[in-house]
Amino acid sequence: MQALVIVAHGSHLNPDASAPTYAHADTVRETGVFDEVATAFWKEEPSFREVLRTLESEEVYVVPLFVSEGYFTEEVIPRELRLEGWDVDAWDSDGTSATQATFAAADVDKTVHYCGPVGTHDAMADVIVRRAESVTGDPEVGPGFGLAVVGHGTERNEHSAKAIEYHADRVRERGRFAEVRALFMDEAPEIDDVTDHFQSDDIVVVPLFVADGYHTQEDIPEDVGLTDDHREGWETPATVDGHRIWYAGAVGTEPLLAEVVLERAADAGAEVGDALEEVRRRTRVAAGEPAPGPAGTGD
């Protein structure tokens, strides 16, 4: 038997923080490729400490729903899962290249495949593009459009900016969007000046965050100038300095992210059959349709 565990931060304060985690877990459940699919949280229940004991499977694939490698993925999660002999070197990562490492857990008789976070997987580039499609309702969006991939910046996590730039580069290389930029909240180039960085009239702004919350629903909309007061919401698109800004909300809420979760598990040796293709197909954006799934864009 094989199990998938999606681990995420969760929140004591925000009831929506766990919603994307549940949604992606359900998408994977419906593919039927895992005998068990569980979720666990730092701030909610079950905790990282107690999730493994709820499972029957001997092989467990743990996929962190985090945007980058750092404190949580390197220290908190392995410690709380009681991965025996964990050392960050086991991932052999340059900060964005972790795939997986295999451990025993101290409190259960299981093999735990501890995967790199979803946020650094190459397939995230597809999710960012899909996010642009879903927020514009245009499966062909790209030509004439600018795309801003937004991250926290270095102040919070040394690897965070690296991951944002990596994905921006990859999307840019595809030549689909007229312009692609990596912008940050804490460092230059800053999201506050988003219109300075684009020639295109239309700019899609995709924040590389797991869940909608304070940053994606309050900070960024106000910083970008979508609204003066986040409580009053904003238009999609909103006009800022003569540009149309299509603000997407957290990329983690995009249904296709479930496919990245599966990719992570598959890279670690999980049997996923044709589930990758199935999830891609089921989460596709049809022309003219509004954004599917749990995407809350605050308007």
């Binding site: 995420a8 304060l13 925000n14 919350g213 304070y214 940053h215 994606t216």
Partner: peptide, 11 residues
């Protein structure tokens, strides 16, 4: 504490 929650919950 509030700031910690906002950071973490956002991912």
């Amino acid at each position: 504490d509030g700031a910690d929650e906002a950071d973490g919950a956002d991912g």
